[in-house]
Nucleic acid binder design. Structure first.
Lengths: 212, 212
DNA sequence: ATGTTAAGACCGACTAGTTGGTTTGTTTTA
DNA sequence: TAAAACAAACCAACTAGTCGGTCTTAACAT
C-alpha cells in the first residue's frame, strides 16, 4: 500500500523537475529516467507531454476551487467567508507548491483544448471571491468605495505571488503568513464600523487554524 | 529618424511573440520572418536566442530599479516615498507590459550567467521597498507590528500580478489602478495617527499623476 | 491443481520533424 | 576599398512520439 503506481511516480518526478527547470527545460526522456519508468510506460499513462501538464494544472485548480466553495458554504458573513477562503488558499501553498509554480509559469503552453477547461475553473474561483466582496459591500462590512474587481485581483495577486518566495522550511509557517495577509486585507477593506466589531469576533483567526 | 534599426525591429517582434506564445513557443525563424530580417541579421545583433531573452529582462528591470531609486531620492517621508514608488511601478505596466510578461514567465529559462545579473538588480529593487517600509515603521508612520518582508512581498505581489489581467485599452486607466493600490496599501500599513495626517496631505495622489 | 489464453501494463530502440546556430556569400556604408 | 551589416542555404543535435514486443495477472477450462 506504500507502493506508488507508475503514474504517481511519473507525476511526482515531473512536478519536481518542472518546478526547477520549467516545462520546456525537461524532456520526456529525463522524466522517464528519473522516475524509473520507460517511454512506453509514460505514453501508456499519458497521451502526450501536454496531457501531463494539463493533469498537473487540473489537480491544483480543482482542489483550490473546492476549498473556496467549501469555505463559502461553511461560513455565513462576508468577513468570515473571505478570511476562510484566504486562509485555505494560502495553506494550499504548503502542499501544492510545485503544482502552483507549474500552474503559473507554464499555463501559456497548455494546448487550447486544455487551457479552456482550466480557465473555466479559474474564472469560477475568481467569481467566488468577487461575490464575497460584493456581498461584503452590500452588507456594510466592506468599504463601499472599493472596486470589486481590483480589490479581488489585489487579494489574488498578493496571495498568488507567495509561490515566488515561500519556502516550506523557511522561518515563517504558512499559518503565520496567512494571518499576515488576512490582517493586511482586513485593514484595507473593512469599514470603520466593521473593524470595531471584528476586533471582538475575529479572534477565531488565531485559534482556529483548521478552517476547512 | 523614424527608421527603426533591425535590432529594434527584432526586439519588438520578439516581445510581441514571446508575450503571446512564450519563449519556447516562438522559433528564431519566426522572429526573423515577422521582423523582416534574416538569420544572419539576427545573429549579427545577438549572440544567441538566450541573449535576446536576457536583453529583454535587463531593459525592464533596469528601468524599474531606476524609477524606484529616483522616487526614493525625490521624496522625503516614508509614506510619500512608498506612494511614489508604487505609482511609478504600476505605471510601468502601461509601457512595458510585454517585457514584464516575459520577465515573469520566462526567467526560469535564463542561463545562469544571465539570471545572476538580473537577480542582483531584482534584489536591489526589493531592498528599496523593504528600506522604505523599515523607515516608515521607525518614523511611526507605519504600524510597528508589520513584518517588513511579508508586507513588502504583499505589495510587490499585488502590483506584479497586474500583468496577468491589465489590458491597456481596458475600462480603467493605469492611473486609476495605481490609485486603488495606493489606497489599499495605505489603509493597511499606516498608523491611525498617520492616517489623520495623510487625509490632508495626500491629495497629491489625485492631482499629481506624473510622479517621476 | 494445471495448462491455456487474453488483456492490460510496461519496455526501449527507433524515427521523423524541428530548431538553434553556422557558414559562406552579398550588399551597404563610411 | 575595407569593414560593418545583412541574406540564405545548410547542418548537427535534440526531442516528442511510435511501434513491435515482453511480462504479469487473472479468469477459465480441463
Amino acid at each position: 500500500m506504500a507502493e506508488k503506481t507508475l503514474k504517481e511516480r511519473i507525476i511526482d518526478t515531473a512536478l519536481r523537475l518542472f518546478e526547477q527547470y520549467g516545462y520546456h527545460g525537461v524532456t520526456v526522456d529525463r522524466i522517464v529516467t528519473e522516475s524509473n519508468a520507460s517511454k512506453g510506460g509514460f505514453y501508456h499513462n499519458f497521451k502526450s507531454k501536454d496531457e501531463l501538464l494539463y493533469h498537473i494544472h487540473d489537480v491544483f485548480i480543482t482542489y483550490v476551487l473546492n476549498k473556496a466553495q467549501d469555505a463559502y458554504k461553511n461560513y455565513h458573513t462576508p468577513t468570515e467567508r473571505l478570511c476562510a477562503i484566504i486562509q485555505s488558499f494560502v495553506k494550499v501553498f504548503h502542499l501544492y507548491k510545485p503544482h502552483i509554480t507549474v500552474f503559473y509559469q507554464e499555463s501559456t503552453y497548455l494546448k487550447p483544448e486544455y487551457s479552456q477547461k482550466i480557465n473555466e475553473k479559474r474564472d469560477e474561483f475568481k467569481q467566488v471571491i468577487f461575490q464575497v466582496i460584493r456581498e461584503g459591500i452590500i452588507a456594510g462590512e466592506f468599504r463601499p468605495e472599493l472596486s470589486v474587481e481590483i480589490t479581488g485581483m489585489s487579494i489574488i495577486g498578493m496571495v498568488n505571488w507567495t509561490y515566488k518566495w515561500y519556502k516550506p522550511d523557511g522561518p515563517m509557517t504558512i499559518e503565520q503568513i496567512a494571518a499576515h495577509f488576512i490582517d493586511f486585507i482586513l485593514h484595507s477593506i473593512l469599514t470603520e464600523e466593521a473593524k470595531q466589531k471584528a476586533e471582538n469576533s475575529l479572534f477565531f483567526l488565531e485559534t482556529q487554524t483548521n478552517v476547512i
